[in-house]
């Protein structure tokens, strides 16, 4: 069953583009990555999915039901972590968690305590005294304490230190193994590549690719690294050339015979030919325009 199904979803903010004719399906139990640079339309898609904004056209189905018709029932089963965690500043962490649980009509104390302990977060602290990373942790507990069937996470790791990121993904992996569907947006490709089984790439409000993460990596191109030379061979299907001290690296999408023939005529000391990583795949989908700096950071 598809847990999320976005069909021909379009959103304009006045004349400004949000997303255009976006189609996306996420299966139950999936760990799905939604990749794109800032401003590509990730948050717009998520906000429509959660009913925070209305689409200009198109439909949203969650758990097989139209989001517009039963928003309350659907939100009961969703845990959401926004990209910027904002809470009532004069409340304590425990009060925010209690308020969130109260709005859901459930007693989540046991689960909340466990999450607080794993994330090393003091429940007595005032929200206004928390750092960005600690506010993120509050957001994680709010999103997970009621053990939702679907977790929607918008840029979840920004602001978390590497150790906490690892713990956070360990928690998500456990939840995913228990059957929770994870849908996370990110511009950090390495984390999508490491944890997600499926991913979609969004560009300027449109989905440009959606598949298994390992298949997305297969573009026919190879990452070639040559040592002992500083220029790539004179072949047409070469791009993204990176030169460093005594080595050159490039993406090659031509035939292997032509490459080997060209290399045989060069004073190469060492050759490495491998699959390009997601970052390079993204560059492939983004073509000449390249990703923006934030994406590549």
């Amino acid at each position: 069953m598809n847990v999320i199904e976005l069909t021909a979803l379009t959103k304009y903010y006045g004349k400004a583009r949000g997303i255009i004719d976006l189609n996306l399906a996420v299966k139950e139990g999936d760990f799905f990555g939604f990749i794109g640079p800032n401003g590509a339309g990730k948050s717009t898609s998520i906000r429509i999915l959660l009913g925070l904004i209305a689409p200009t056209s198109g439909t949203v189905q969650v758990f097989g039901r139209k989001q517009k018709e039963q928003p309350r029932e659907l939100l009961k089963q969703i845990g959401y972590m926004p990209s910027e965690a904002s809470f009532y500043p004069n409340m304590r962490v425990e009060e925010v968690l209690r308020f969130s649980a109260g709005l859901r009509g459930c007693d989540c104390r046991a689960e909340a305590e466990q999450l607080l302990s794993r994330l090393d977060l003091d429940p007595k602290k005032k929200i206004r005294a928390l750092s960005l990373g600690n506010r993120k942790k509050v957001s994680i507990v709010c999103a997970l304490q009621h053990q939702p069937r679907l977790c929607v996470l918008d840029e979840p790791t920004s602001g978390l230190d590497p150790l906490m990121q690892r713990e956070f993904y360990a928690i998500l992996k456990e939840r995913n193994q228990q059957g929770t569907t994870i849908f996370l947006s990110s511009h950090v490709l390495s984390e999508v590549q490491r944890y997600c089984s499926h991913a979609a790439i969004i560009r300027k409000g449109r989905i440009v690719a959606a598949d298994e993460v390992r298949k997305l990596g297969y573009t026919g191109a190879k990452r070639v690294v040559l040592r002992g030379v500083e220029e790539p061979p004179q072949l047409e299907q070469i791009k993204d050339v990176v030169k460093s001290d005594g080595a050159v690296s490039f993406l090659y999408s031509g035939g292997s015979g032509a490459l080997l023939q060209a290399l045989a005529a060069m004073p190469v000391l060492d050759v490495t030919i491998g699959e390009p990583d997601l970052e390079e795949i993204f560059l492939h989908y983004y073509g000449e325009e390249r990703a923006n700096d934030a994406f590549l950071s």
Partner: peptide, 14 residues
């Protein structure tokens, strides 16, 4: 104004 609407309205409350 305080950006808490997103937190509030993603709970199951109409």
């Amino acid at each position: 104004k305080e950006h808490t609407a997103e937190f509030l309205l993603t709970h199951p409350i109409s």
